[in-house]
Computed example of a mutant assay.
Amino acid sequence: MRHVLLAAAFLLSAGFAHAAEPLEGNWKTASGETATIGKCGSAFCVTLKTGKHAGKQIGKLSGTGGTYKGEITDPAADKTYSGSGTVSGNSLKMKGCVMAVLCKTQTWTRL
Protein backbone atom coordinates (compact mmCIF):
# COMPACT_ATOMS: atom_id res chain seq x y z
CA MET A 1 0.00 0.00 0.00
CA ARG A 2 2.84 2.36 0.85
CA HIS A 3 4.39 1.84 -2.60
CA VAL A 4 1.07 2.58 -4.27
CA LEU A 5 0.75 5.86 -2.34
CA LEU A 6 4.33 6.85 -3.22
CA ALA A 7 3.74 6.06 -6.89
CA ALA A 8 0.51 8.08 -6.89
CA ALA A 9 2.24 11.03 -5.22
CA PHE A 10 5.03 10.88 -7.82
CA LEU A 11 2.56 10.84 -10.72
CA LEU A 12 0.59 13.77 -9.28
CA SER A 13 3.73 15.85 -8.75
CA ALA A 14 4.91 15.09 -12.28
CA GLY A 15 1.53 16.25 -13.59
CA PHE A 16 1.76 19.53 -11.67
CA ALA A 17 5.30 20.16 -12.92
CA HIS A 18 4.16 19.55 -16.49
CA ALA A 19 1.22 21.94 -16.06
CA ALA A 20 3.48 24.84 -15.01
CA GLU A 21 3.02 28.02 -17.01
CA PRO A 22 5.96 28.61 -19.39
CA LEU A 23 7.84 31.89 -18.99
CA GLU A 24 9.86 31.63 -22.18
CA GLY A 25 8.63 33.39 -25.28
CA ASN A 26 7.80 36.80 -26.69
CA TRP A 27 5.79 39.28 -24.62
CA LYS A 28 4.18 42.66 -25.31
CA THR A 29 5.19 45.00 -22.47
CA ALA A 30 2.90 47.57 -20.82
CA SER A 31 4.56 50.28 -22.95
CA GLY A 32 3.88 48.35 -26.18
CA GLU A 33 7.42 47.11 -26.81
CA THR A 34 8.29 43.48 -27.44
CA ALA A 35 10.45 41.60 -24.94
CA THR A 36 11.75 38.07 -25.29
CA ILE A 37 12.38 35.79 -22.34
CA GLY A 38 14.72 32.84 -22.76
CA LYS A 39 17.08 30.59 -20.85
CA CYS A 40 20.48 32.03 -19.96
CA GLY A 41 22.39 29.59 -17.79
CA SER A 42 20.18 28.47 -14.91
CA ALA A 43 17.97 31.58 -15.12
CA PHE A 44 15.71 33.33 -17.64
CA CYS A 45 16.89 36.58 -19.25
CA VAL A 46 14.47 39.32 -20.29
CA THR A 47 15.66 41.26 -23.35
CA LEU A 48 13.89 44.07 -25.19
CA LYS A 49 13.49 43.39 -28.92
CA THR A 50 11.82 46.64 -30.02
CA GLY A 51 11.75 50.28 -29.00
CA LYS A 52 14.38 52.79 -27.93
CA HIS A 53 16.24 50.24 -25.78
CA ALA A 54 16.09 47.28 -28.20
CA GLY A 55 18.77 44.68 -27.46
CA LYS A 56 19.12 45.64 -23.80
CA GLN A 57 18.76 42.93 -21.17
CA ILE A 58 16.30 44.28 -18.60
CA GLY A 59 15.90 41.36 -16.25
CA LYS A 60 17.04 38.01 -14.96
CA LEU A 61 14.59 35.70 -13.20
CA SER A 62 14.79 32.23 -11.67
CA GLY A 63 12.06 29.88 -10.57
CA THR A 64 9.54 27.31 -11.73
CA GLY A 65 5.84 26.61 -11.74
CA GLY A 66 4.73 30.01 -13.00
CA THR A 67 6.42 32.06 -10.25
CA TYR A 68 9.83 33.64 -10.78
CA LYS A 69 12.09 36.01 -8.78
CA GLY A 70 15.17 38.02 -9.61
CA GLU A 71 16.04 41.50 -10.85
CA ILE A 72 14.24 43.89 -13.20
CA THR A 73 15.79 47.01 -14.76
CA ASP A 74 13.88 50.12 -15.80
CA PRO A 75 15.69 50.83 -19.09
CA ALA A 76 14.70 54.52 -19.19
CA ALA A 77 16.12 55.28 -15.71
CA ASP A 78 18.77 52.50 -15.90
CA LYS A 79 17.88 51.46 -12.32
CA THR A 80 17.63 47.84 -11.19
CA TYR A 81 15.07 46.61 -8.67
CA SER A 82 14.24 43.33 -6.99
CA GLY A 83 11.59 41.79 -9.15
CA SER A 84 9.23 38.95 -9.72
CA GLY A 85 7.06 37.55 -12.47
CA THR A 86 3.94 35.43 -12.31
CA VAL A 87 2.58 33.70 -15.41
CA SER A 88 -1.14 33.00 -15.74
CA GLY A 89 -2.23 31.84 -19.18
CA ASN A 90 -1.20 34.53 -21.67
CA SER A 91 -0.52 37.15 -19.00
CA LEU A 92 2.70 37.88 -17.13
CA LYS A 93 2.56 40.14 -14.08
CA MET A 94 5.97 41.77 -13.70
CA LYS A 95 6.65 43.45 -10.36
CA GLY A 96 9.62 45.60 -9.39
CA CYS A 97 10.23 46.76 -5.81
CA VAL A 98 12.51 49.10 -3.89
CA MET A 99 13.32 47.65 -0.48
CA ALA A 100 10.31 45.28 -0.87
CA VAL A 101 8.02 48.18 0.10
CA LEU A 102 7.54 50.47 -2.89
CA CYS A 103 6.42 48.27 -5.76
CA LYS A 104 5.11 48.78 -9.28
CA THR A 105 3.35 46.07 -11.29
CA GLN A 106 2.86 45.78 -15.04
CA THR A 107 0.92 43.15 -16.96
CA TRP A 108 2.51 41.84 -20.15
CA THR A 109 0.71 39.82 -22.81
CA ARG A 110 2.09 36.76 -24.61
CA LEU A 111 2.56 37.26 -28.36
Rank of each mutant, 00 (worst) to 15 (best):
F10G: 10
L11F: 13
L11I: 13
L12W: 07
L12G: 15
L12Y: 05
S13W: 11
A14T: 10
A14N: 10
A14R: 07
G15V: 01
G15P: 02
F16V: 11
A17Y: 15
A17H: 12
H18T: 08
H18Y: 12
A19S: 15
A19E: 09
A20E: 15
A20D: 14
P22M: 08
L23W: 05
L23N: 00
E24Q: 03
G25Y: 01
G25I: 11
G25V: 09
N26W: 04
W27Y: 06
K28P: 09
T29N: 03
T29V: 08
T29Q: 06
T29S: 05
T29P: 14
T29I: 13
S31Y: 06
G32I: 00
G32E: 03
G32A: 00
G32C: 00
G32K: 01
E33A: 04
T34N: 07
T34I: 08
T34H: 01
T36K: 06
I37D: 05
I37Q: 02
I37H: 05
G38N: 15
G38R: 07
G38Q: 15
G38F: 02
G38C: 12
G38M: 11
K39S: 10
K39I: 12
K39R: 11
K39H: 13
C40R: 04
C40G: 09
C40V: 14
G41C: 09
A43S: 11
C45Y: 03
V46F: 00
V46K: 00
V46T: 08
V46N: 00
T47F: 05
T47W: 01
L48M: 02
L48H: 01
K49H: 07
T50Q: 02
T50V: 02
G51N: 04
G51V: 03
K52E: 03
H53M: 01
H53Y: 11
H53A: 05
A54Q: 04
G55E: 07
G55V: 02
G55A: 14
K56P: 01
Q57S: 02
Q57G: 10
Q57F: 01
Q57L: 13
Q57C: 06
G59H: 05
K60Y: 06
K60Q: 15
L61C: 02
L61I: 07
L61K: 03
S62Q: 10
G63R: 14
G63S: 04
G63P: 00
G63N: 10
G63M: 07
G65Y: 07
G65T: 09
G65L: 06
G65F: 06
T67A: 14
T67V: 10
T67S: 14
Y68N: 00
Y68S: 04
K69D: 05
K69F: 13
G70K: 03
G70M: 03
G70R: 03
E71S: 09
E71W: 12
